[in-house]
Measured scan of single mutants.
Amino acid sequence: MDVFMKGLSKAKEGVVAAAEKTKQGVAEAAGKTKEGVLYVGSKTKEGVVHGVATVAEKTKEQVTNVGGAVVTGVTAVAQKTVEGAGSIAAATGFVKKDQLGKNEEGAPQEGILEDMPVDPDNEAYEMPSEEGYQDYEPEA
């Protein structure tokens, strides 16, 4: 019985440690998101679009440190934060509304985080759909 109880105690310690790591990862992701939003706020009209992409990228980098179902929630929060940063930029006159959601080359930025393969159960990952990809044929 002692062996059984000791095993359960060790398992509990492992769960607590994993929860603490997840909590730490979420806190880091939130900190990076805040950094990115402050970065966007300090940019001029020309830099705002690039700044919004930076927020998304920093958040995406930190999301990889967070495991399990938390990833889905962090990704949703990050996307809403990026959308909010863009709205703030438009409201303050840093950028025109028609410039939001495009990178410096004018290509749409939507789907940055949505296409990231995420499995809350950590069982399997699927690649994003290939609808947006084109076949590449090298020139002879």
Rank of each mutant, 00 (worst) to 15 (best):
M1F: 00
M1N: 00
M1G: 00
D2V: 00
D2Y: 06
D2I: 02
V3T: 00
V3S: 03
F4D: 01
F4Y: 09
F4I: 06
M5A: 02
M5V: 08
M5L: 00
M5E: 00
K6Q: 02
K6T: 03
K10V: 14
A11Y: 03
A11S: 02
A11E: 00
K12T: 14
K12M: 14
K12H: 15
K12V: 15
E13G: 04
G14F: 14
V15A: 03
V15P: 00
V16H: 04
V16T: 07
A17L: 08
A17H: 06
A19E: 00
A19P: 00
A19N: 00
A19Q: 01
K21P: 00
K23L: 12
Q24S: 08
Q24M: 15
G25F: 14
G25E: 08
G25Y: 14
G25D: 02
V26M: 15
V26C: 14
A27W: 12
A27Q: 14
A27N: 08
E28T: 06
E28S: 09
A29T: 04
A30V: 11
K32N: 02
T33A: 06
K34T: 02
K34V: 14
K34F: 14
E35K: 05
E35M: 14
G36M: 14
G36Q: 15
L38N: 04
L38C: 10
Y39D: 01
V40S: 00
G41H: 14
K43Q: 05
T44G: 04
T44W: 15
K45N: 01
K45R: 14
E46I: 05
E46M: 08
E46Y: 07
G47Q: 13
V48G: 01
V48Y: 12
V49Y: 14
H50A: 13
V52K: 01
A53V: 09
T54W: 10
K58N: 04
K60C: 09
K60Y: 05
E61A: 05
E61D: 05
E61R: 05
V63M: 14
V63Y: 13
V63R: 03
V63H: 01
N65D: 04
G67K: 05
G68W: 14
V70F: 03
V71G: 02
T72P: 02
G73Y: 07
G73A: 14
G73T: 14
G73W: 11
V74Y: 14
T75G: 06
T75F: 14
V77P: 02
V77Y: 07
V77Q: 02
V77R: 03
A78K: 04
A78R: 06
Q79W: 07
Q79I: 08
Q79C: 08
Q79H: 11
K80G: 04
K80R: 07
K80M: 10
K80E: 02
K80V: 07
T81Y: 11
T81M: 13
V82L: 13
V82T: 06
V82A: 10
E83V: 07
G84T: 15
G86N: 14
S87D: 10
S87K: 03
S87A: 12
I88M: 10
I88H: 02
I88L: 11
A90E: 04
A90S: 06
T92Q: 03
G93R: 03
G93L: 07
F94Y: 09
F94L: 08
V95S: 08
K96V: 14
K96C: 15
D98G: 12
D98R: 07
Q99N: 09
Q99R: 05
L100M: 06
L100F: 02
G101W: 07
G101H: 09
G101A: 04
N103T: 09
N103D: 12
N103I: 04
N103Y: 05
E105I: 01
E105S: 07
E105Q: 14
A107Y: 09
A107V: 10
Q109I: 09
Q109L: 04
Q109F: 11
E110D: 12
E110L: 13
I112F: 05
L113W: 12
E114N: 07
E114T: 04
E114S: 12
D115G: 15
D115S: 05
M116L: 13
M116V: 01
P117I: 05
V118D: 08
D119A: 13
D121R: 03
E123Y: 05
E123C: 12
E123D: 10
E123S: 11
E123A: 04
A124T: 02
Y125M: 03
Y125N: 11
E126G: 12
P128R: 10
P128G: 05
P128N: 12
P128I: 09
S129E: 08
E130H: 08
E131T: 10
E131S: 14
G132L: 10
G132D: 11
Y133A: 08
Q134E: 06
D135E: 13
D135C: 06
D135N: 12
D135M: 08
D135H: 13
Y136P: 09
E137R: 12
P138I: 04
P138G: 11
E139P: 05
A140E: 06
A140G: 10
A140W: 11
